[in-house]
Amino acid sequence: MKRFPQCGCVASDDRTNGSNRKQRNVFMAAHAHDHAEYNPIGHVASKPMLLTVFFLLVGLTALTIWQGTQLELGTWELIIVLVIATAKASLVVLFFMHLRYDKPLNVFAFLSSLLFMSLFIGLTLADAVNYQPEVSAKEEDAASP
């Protein structure tokens, strides 16, 4: 009984940390067991959540190994590998790094780094692909005198 106010505290803390989204059921259930988990400054990750995320990550690793070594998918392979890696990365970022419960500013900062990274890689790659024929032609010239 005494702990209900604490629970309220946790909820309000979430709001101040900028997370307006409702907690998902899994984590809600986990939350209900841990009224004692209060911190005055930030969101405390619950044990079931941490374990769930870890096992999901291991599962996705197994999936990507199976897919990478057993399946022949041609060009799709790279895409699928990257999709699975991104799923894993998202899990780490959202839960282990508590970005899901963090201030929008920190989310924005992290996303902007990805944006600028893709800009850098994307434009460089686009150029490299376009000048490569010229380089290859020169290389062939040099190879066959």
């Binding site: 897919q67 990478g68 699975i84 890696a85 780490v92 790094m97």
Partner: peptide, 22 residues
């Protein structure tokens, strides 16, 4: 912790990109 997770994050991409080219 955040730094450590980022190091993990980089590996999450390095592993498939280097080991699982196929």
């Amino acid at each position: 912790g955040l730094y450590w997770h980022l190091v993990d994050l980089v590996w999450i991409y390095l592993f498939p990109l280097l080991y699982l080219i196929g």
